[in-house]
């Protein structure tokens, strides 16, 4: 158990780089690979996870002493599912187009490894303030990587960014970038780049 040794701000910043859920822990790759075809999809997915993760961490951290150890995973899932449903229905009501292009991946946040891992590893053992900071950091880190990956894929694969044409009209789109192989290639490159950068920074 982490006693108030780590400064509070580090609970937030560790998710951005040092323990980034995608680049460092390679969690939640399913939505990462599937929805990052356009920047708008990437950021919507990130925000949906942010909402779910922060809210579930808050509630689970509040009731962490009441949850019997034997049924803790089931309890986590019920709480997470509640907030996923809220997020899913909200997106469907206000941004139907986004909801349609994200497809089943918003409901699937229920089984997103990042969300469950933060409950199991952090929120169920730490006080509320720290848990919320941790959830915020993790989901902001997740959203940032999703945004970067989706931007690269959209710009190269379709010549647009957030739907705006930014490549010259003569540009030939690299179809592979919006297809699954492009997602795997770019995610691999991003992780390689972050490892390289990390090695440089540690020197």
């Amino acid at each position: 158990m982490v006693k108030a040794k780590t400064p509070l701000y580090r609970e937030f910043t560790k998710g951005l780089w040092r323990e980034n859920p995608i680049l460092r822990m390679v969690l939640g790759t399913c939505p990462t690979l599937a929805v990052t075809t356009t920047a708008i999809n990437g950021i919507s997915m990130g925000l949906a996870v942010l909402f779910t993760l922060v809210m579930s961490s808050l509630i689970i951290s509040l009731v962490r002493k009441q949850i019997p150890n034997e049924v803790r995973i089931a309890t986590f899932i019920v709480i997470i599912a509640t907030f996923v449903t809220v997020a899913d229905r909200t997106i469907a009501a206000f941004w139907p187009a986004v909801s349609k292009s994200l497809g089943p991946f918003v409901p699937l946040i229920v089984v997103n490894c990042i969300v469950l891992a933060r409950q199991e590893a952090f929120a169920s053992k730490n006080p509320v303030g720290r848990s919320v900071l941790d959830a915020l950091g993790m989901s902001v880190g997740f959203t940032l990587v999703l945004l970067i990956l989706a931007s690269i894929r959209e710009i190269i694969g379709s010549g647009t960014w957030f739907g705006m044409q930014i490549m010259p009209p003569t540009y030939t789109s690299w179809m592979v970038m919006v297809l699954p192989p492009g997602a795997f290639l770019m995610l691999g490159m991003l992780i390689a780049f972050s490892n390289w950068l990390n090695a440089k920074l540690e020197k």
């Binding site: 030939t172 690299w174 179809m175 592979v176 970038m177 297809l179 192989p181 492009g182």
Partner: peptide, 10 residues
Amino acid sequence: AFLQASFPIP
């Protein structure tokens, strides 16, 4: 294979 997936028409 990369070219085929990227530029199917050419």
